[in-house]
Design a protein around this nucleic acid. Structure first.
Length: 477
RNA sequence: GCUGCUAUAGUGUAGUCCGGCCAAUCAUUUCGGCCUUUCACGCCGAAGACUGGGGUUCGAAUCCCCAUAGCAGCACCA
């Protein structure tokens, strides 16, 4: 496996403090994995501390189950977290620094209507609240905290530069009032906005380097205003480009919608880009990690390719996956004149010491319909013997044609998987395109939870062996 | 509309800061071949790119300008 080196980080020689800061709105997906892994990779490279900061300052975007899911997903990824911080535990801190920012003249309480402020901002005009004194602002802030305002009636804004050429920079909000919905962890009416809480936390937690998506470039500039008011040093920032994924929605809200409407089975539906979906399909966390590091921190927008992920995963999984036969759409056929015998097939072709599977042939085999319908003249049943295929009255007839592999080679006979009719287990292979019904070897029962290779079909993770049929999830070819 | 960022093969990526060693790296992909009782793995080989146009220079993927395209932000979301 080729190991790709990430570009070096400035000012990182003496260690770094970094953070991964998801909001708990759902499980982690590939987009999160990029942020989580990249930061983790740098912490591991330079040494230091990795903080998981749960950004739960918007009750509208909290799914109380997500707190747990995020933790699970991170540990699945094999990421080392040294400290977990919940922003909802820190509201008092934000209020304290909010007050201080007002005292320093860096913020004011604005009671303009949203639309009104927006228009003033476009015209680079100060709103009527902007000139209020520090004392007046502090009083208003206290009233906010005391719950004396309705939602939307007041907010705290950071004083920036009304002439700033980028309208996005002008007096952005730092706190808002929210009466509803209720926050699952705390009881509050004044909520810090992302740019404020992030600035305070990044400083207080000693964050030295931040790697995040370029959708945060404007936020980085806004946060700099707050750092400047407090006289703090800003971390080193890196913004990587947008990442799309072939044929997948990564938006948590869209995924949730699909689950609610019944389009998807759940967060681990194999058509989804969540980490739990990948895990269920047998994608290894190391493959995700490698694929993400391979992509790096470039600022270009990219499209994540499944092929590249699969290639990484194949490298990891191929040496460990045991081989088995899976026969899709099985057709039972008796083989004429064939001596009963027992086939021995290697669990892994490159590692004979691992042992063999034993498949007793007693006259009738199950073959994949697709293979028979190609009407080959001769086929070789893998690890068994050769068979001549003919038709009589529209029915396929198979006749024993010797054991010699070389003879099959000579006529370029396809070598195909098969199963004894009397000891095959029903098995459903679940693919993104749909389910494939078939049968597999009884020994697959022993592989619950692990990834196997169904020979000539592809890799699959054995998900469930408890029901009346084995359930396997297709990983990739 | 305003502000900013980016632009290397199908995909991802190296090279760009400090112009020549780049007729452009590596991986994946596709196609051949070898190996093989899997259409897997492994091995060998091939295919495939510097967005376009100007400029600077002896020399540009690399510097400058313009164009084009994509993306992001302009939320009391993160």
């Amino acid at each position: 496996m080729h190991i790709k080196e990430l570009p070096r980080l400035e000012k990182a020689e003496h260690g770094v403090v970094m953070r991964f800061a998801p909001n708990p709105s759902g499980p982690l997906h590939l987009g999160h994995a990029r942020a989580a892994v990249l930061n983790d990779a740098y912490v591991k490279r330079y040494g230091g501390k990795y903080i998981l900061r749960i950004e739960d300052t918007d009750p509208k975007r909290i799914d109380s189950e997500a707190y747990q899911m995020v933790i699970e997903d991170i540990s699945w990824l094999g990421i080392t977290i040294h400290e977990v911080v919940y922003q909802s535990d820190r509201f008092d801190l934000y209020y304290r620094y909010g007050r201080e920012l007002i005292e320093r003249g860096g913020a004011y309480v604005c009671s303009c209507e949203n639309e009104q402020f927006r228009q003033l901002k476009q015209k680079k005009t100060a709103c009527p609240c902007r000139p209020l004194s520090v004392e007046e602002n502090l009083t208003l802030f206290d009233k906010m905290l005391a719950g004396e305002f309705y939602e939307g009636e007041a907010s705290v804004r950071v004083r920036t530069d009304l002439d700033h050429p980028d309208p996005a920079m002008r007096d952005f909000p730092a706190f808002r009032i929210l009466h509803q919905p209720l926050h699952p962890r705390i009881d509050a009416v004044v909520y810090p906005l992302m740019n404020f809480s992030v600035s305070i936390d990044d400083h207080l937690l000693g964050v030295t380097h931040v790697i995040r998506g370029k959708d945060h470039i404007a936020n980085t500039r806004r946060q700099r205003y707050i750092f400047d008011y407090f006289g703090w040093d800003v971390p080193v920032y890196r913004h990587y480009g947008r990442m799309g994924i072939e044929g997948v929605v990564l938006s948590t809200s869209q995924m949730r919608q699909g689950i609610v409407s019944g389009e998807y089975e759940g967060w681990d539906d194999i058509r989804l880009g969540t980490l739990r979906a990948l895990s269920r399909r047998g994608i290894s966390p190391d493959a995700v990690r490698q694929a993400v590091i391979d992509i790096g921190i470039g600022e270009t927008d990219i499209s994540f390719s499944w092929d590249n992920l699969y290639a990484q995963n194949r490298m990891i999984v191929d040496p460990v996956a045991n081989r088995y036969f899976f026969v899709s759409h099985p057709v039972g056929l008796e083989i004429r004149d064939a001596p009963h015998q027992v086939a021995h097939a290697l669990l892994h072709p490159n590692e004979p010491v691992r042992g063999k599977r034993i498949l007793p042939f007693t006259g009738t085999v199950l073959l994949p319909r697709e293979e028979i319908e190609k009407e080959p003249a001769v086929i070789r049943l893998k690890d068994l013997f050769n068979v001549i295929v003919s038709r009589e009255d529209g029915e396929y007839v198979l006749t024993y044609a010797g054991d010699q592999l070389s003879e099959a080679r000579d006529v370029k006979a396809p070598i195909i998987q098969w199963l004894p009719a009397d000891c095959a287990l029903p098995c459903v292979l679940r693919k993104q395109e749909g389910d494939v019904l078939g049968v597999c070897e009884p020994d697959v029962m022993r592989e619950a939870g692990s990834v196997v290779q169904f020979e000539r079909v592809g890799f699959a993770r054995i998900d469930d062996t408890a029901g009346d049929r084995i359930v396997a999830y297709f990983t990739h070819r």
